[in-house]
Computed example of a mutant assay.
Amino acid sequence: MIVLTGDGEKGAVDHAPFDRVLSTAAARNIPYTWVEQCIDEGLIVTPYTGEGHRWALLVLTVSAGVASGGMNGTASFMPLRGQGLSPVDQRAIECHDDLHMTVTASGQTLTYSQG
């Protein structure tokens, strides 16, 4: 196991590839560097606070440069540097327990039921 300190959004390219990327800071935007540094069939596990949910625990599986998956419970952690939301913005987020995310080199997309 490797434990590093620094800007978590950059990952740890000198130690990659990883079979798991575990974040203990909430992400609103999943850094693509995490996908790039994870092996195929590897997992990205991170708390998420953003569109679609305030405190989701996301589990994403990486395959061919794309990470996708959904919510697997809830988790609340401090945000990654620069990814925090004001308390007012956070309270305004509707929580969808069927949240699904896909992360590609061009960004992330979310799907969930609107009702």
Score class of each variant (00 low, 15 high):
residue 23 S to N: 06
residue 12 A to G: 08
residue 56 A to E: 01
residue 110 L to V: 05
residue 55 W to R: 02
residue 64 A to T: 09
residue 106 S to D: 14
residue 22 L to F: 13
residue 99 L to S: 09
residue 47 P to Y: 10
residue 98 D to Q: 08
residue 113 S to V: 01
residue 87 P to E: 06
residue 42 G to F: 10
residue 110 L to D: 05
residue 50 G to M: 11
residue 91 R to M: 09
residue 6 G to H: 03
residue 64 A to D: 15
residue 74 T to W: 03
residue 75 A to S: 09
residue 31 P to Y: 13
residue 10 K to R: 13
residue 41 E to P: 05
residue 100 H to V: 10
residue 109 T to D: 02
residue 39 I to R: 13
residue 6 G to Y: 08
residue 4 L to C: 06
residue 4 L to D: 03
residue 29 N to Q: 14
residue 63 S to K: 11
residue 39 I to S: 11
residue 46 T to S: 15
residue 55 W to P: 00
residue 109 T to F: 01
residue 2 I to G: 10
residue 61 T to L: 10
residue 4 L to P: 00
residue 82 G to M: 03
residue 99 L to I: 14
residue 12 A to C: 12
residue 53 H to F: 01
residue 95 C to P: 06
residue 74 T to S: 08
residue 25 A to G: 04
residue 113 S to R: 05
residue 84 G to I: 00
residue 46 T to Y: 14
residue 83 Q to H: 02
residue 74 T to A: 02
residue 43 L to W: 14
residue 40 D to Q: 11
residue 74 T to V: 09
residue 90 Q to C: 02
residue 44 I to S: 12
residue 39 I to W: 07
residue 14 D to S: 11
residue 44 I to V: 14
residue 29 N to Y: 11
residue 100 H to L: 06
residue 12 A to L: 07
residue 88 V to W: 00
residue 3 V to G: 06
residue 42 G to M: 05
residue 83 Q to R: 01
residue 88 V to I: 04
residue 93 I to C: 03
residue 44 I to R: 12
residue 28 R to C: 06
residue 93 I to F: 08
residue 107 G to I: 05
residue 93 I to G: 08
residue 74 T to H: 05
residue 61 T to G: 07
residue 8 G to K: 00
residue 16 A to D: 07
residue 25 A to C: 13
residue 17 P to D: 05
residue 27 A to M: 13
residue 92 A to D: 09
residue 79 P to N: 07
residue 74 T to N: 07
residue 72 N to G: 01
residue 25 A to Y: 09
residue 101 M to F: 03
residue 67 A to H: 09
residue 61 T to S: 13
residue 27 A to Y: 09
residue 46 T to L: 15
residue 10 K to A: 12
residue 88 V to P: 00
residue 83 Q to E: 12
residue 91 R to L: 07
residue 61 T to Q: 15
residue 48 Y to G: 12
residue 40 D to L: 10
residue 17 P to Y: 03
residue 31 P to R: 13
residue 67 A to R: 12
residue 48 Y to S: 13
residue 70 G to A: 06
residue 45 V to R: 14
residue 97 D to M: 01
residue 65 G to V: 10
residue 52 G to N: 08
residue 98 D to L: 12
residue 56 A to D: 03
residue 23 S to M: 05
residue 67 A to G: 13
residue 54 R to G: 00
residue 74 T to D: 09
